[in-house]
């Protein structure tokens, strides 16, 4: 089915995603005064920097034909670890940051190993990981831990000025660097290509002698690491650790990746698409804020409708290329 996607068709979802973003931004600009400004655009990045980071990790997982449900909880756990180490153990950020990053990395590595060595389904394993991470963060504390530390305040508040009186945050820089590295990895390293190969057909990848084991474990490790990184960015953003942070974030992430044009069955998609996918989710929220009278649940309904549109679009593409393959 997906095997028959041809190159030109494959890029169509990405084109559609970008077109949709442009369309939505123009719609907002025409409808609301103050919408059409560089800062509104940049705010999309500032408010969703952490989402970009996890969406990048999730893209690799989904490209390989898997799924990672644990990312939202890992954000919460990372924020808890960072907060408690900083506030309760009074450790320096030089220790706190690496330790926090290790949290998700290790969890991801364990998940990847379980999935690979015991042939368990990613869905179930990362579901367990999701419970585990959230449970652990509650074990650290049920309450919110506010962070009051110069390093975190600096990361939260410093603005990097851009021409025209605009600014971005440090988190945005981190997110963009992550995205750039990820695009390079996806297209110009063997690891990246192996991810696509596994998503196309794991059996073939194995028979072709590709390092499937290493790659699969690495994918989940990477996703775990990025989730932790996103957790730190989220902590900078919220300046607190809390077990309920990022509740349901895995769904937003998956939605962003799908809207970004990646096939959920794996094997086709782009990291850049996922970034645009995140921006689309962001712009929906921005529009709802600008509208003022709309309630928050319209966000969910809108995301649902967009998901539907993109999924049907993917189906139509597959159908058309199947037809083409049939006659050709």
């Amino acid at each position: 089915m997906i095997n028959r996607l041809s190159l030109d068709y494959k890029q169509l979802p990405l084109v559609a995603t970008i077109a949709l973003f442009v369309l939505m931004f123009s719609f907002g600009s025409l409808r609301y005064t103050g919408f059409l400004s560089t800062q509104v655009f940049l705010n999309l990045f500032i408010d969703n920097a952490f989402l970009i980071v996890i969406a990048v990790g999730m893209t690799f997982v989904i490209l390989s034909g898997g799924i990672d449900l644990s990312v939202g909880s890992v954000i919460a756990l990372t924020s808890m670890v960072a907060a408690s180490l900083t506030m309760e153990a009074q450790l320096s950020p030089w220790i706190v940051v690496p330790v926090s990053l290790l949290v998700g990395t290790i969890l991801g590595m364990i998940q990847g190993s379980l999935i690979h060595f015991y042939n368990l389904q990613p869905f179930i394993v990362t579901l367990a990981g999701m419970f585990l991470a959230r449970g652990l963060s509650y074990l650290i504390s049920v309450e919110t831990i506010s962070i009051d530390h110069p390093f975190f305040s600096y990361m939260a508040n410093s603005q990097i000025p851009l021409p025209g009186n605009n600014f971005i945050s440090i988190s945005v820089v981190i997110a963009l660097i992550v995205a750039a590295i990820a695009i390079f990895i996806a297209h110009f390293t063997n690891f990246g290509r192996t991810v696509y190969a596994i998503g196309g057909s794991e059996q073939s990848a194995l028979l072709m002698g590709l390092p499937v084991t290493r790659t699969k474990i690495l994918i989940y490790t990477l996703s775990g690491f990025l989730a932790s990184l996103a957790g730190l960015i989220f902590t900078f953003y919220m300046l607190s650790g809390y077990g309920l942070h990022a509740n349901g974030m895995e769904l937003d992430t998956i939605a962003a990746v799908v809207i970004g044009g990646t096939l959920l069955t794996g094997g086709a998609g782009y990291v850049a698409g996922s970034v645009v996918g995140v921006l689309i989710l962001g712009i929906i929220q921005t529009i709802i804020v600008f509208e003022g009278t709309l309630s928050s649940w319209w966000t969910k309904i809108a995301i649902g409708v967009l998901l539907l549109l993109f999924i049907v679009l993917q189906r139509v593409i597959v159908w058309r290329s199947e037809k083409k393959a049939g006659t050709g």
Partner: peptide, 22 residues
């Protein structure tokens, strides 16, 4: 080379030849 071609059809021809030893 197996009867049912065991390559990744979602990748390009070049990639199918070189993947694993790019």
């Amino acid at each position: 080379v197996y009867q049912e071609v065991n390559l990744c059809s979602n990748l390009s021809v070049t990639e199918n030849i070189f993947i694993g030893r790019e």
